[in-house]
């Protein structure tokens, strides 16, 4: 399949799920989809288009949070980034880890540093932060404040 065919295919197949397609450059496409349809779209891209899952990245923006799932189709050298926007009151999305294992660790990480809940993920334990890290403090959120009273931030000179 060529690049155009892939994009047309996506547009046709997921007419109702896709909100916007932003064709940035020959190698990059950003597709915004509705959060509920992430599992269908992602599994189609992974299984049928034979893409490799690169990673996911979460961002805390002013009015919503955003997760980008990056998939690379190596045969045509096209990177598709699926964008989902989550309302801050309801930070929940379906997990992709039942479809492919590769997403399980990155979901753990996003859960830990941004506090987004992944429905259906088997193992959402802490990955990076220490065990005594306080509940409900997420370091990569915009409103993160220093919580530890004992920190030293000067160089002692």
């Amino acid at each position: 399949m060529t690049r155009e065919e892939v994009l047309d295919d996506l547009r046709k197949k997921f007419k109702d799920d896709i909100i916007e397609v932003f064709d940035k450059s020959p190698k990059r496409v950003y597709v915004e989809i509705r959060p509920d349809s992430i599992v269908q779209v992602a599994s189609y891209i992974f299984k049928d288009l034979k893409a490799r899952f690169n990673t996911a990245s979460g961002v805390d923006l002013r009015y919503h949070m955003e997760i980008l799932y990056h998939f690379l189709i190596e045969d045509i050298n096209l990177l598709i980034s699926l964008r989902v926007k989550l309302q801050k009151q309801k930070l929940e999305i379906d997990s992709l880890s039942p479809i492919f294992e590769g997403s399980s660790w990155i979901e753990r990480e996003i859960h830990e540093i941004l506090g987004i809940n992944f429905r259906g993920h088997k193992d959402l334990r802490k990955l990076l932060l220490p065990d005594d890290w306080p509940e409900g403090v997420y370091p990569l959120r915009r409103d993160y404040k220093e919580w530890d009273k004992n920190v030293i931030r000067d160089r002692g000179v």
Partner: peptide, 18 residues
């Protein structure tokens, strides 16, 4: 010595020599 670039990191609270 002084945590170098990581001095403001949320996960590096105190220098080692403390």
């Amino acid at each position: 010595l002084s945590r170098g670039m990581f001095i403001h990191s949320y996960n590096c609270p105190v220098p080692i020599d403390k």
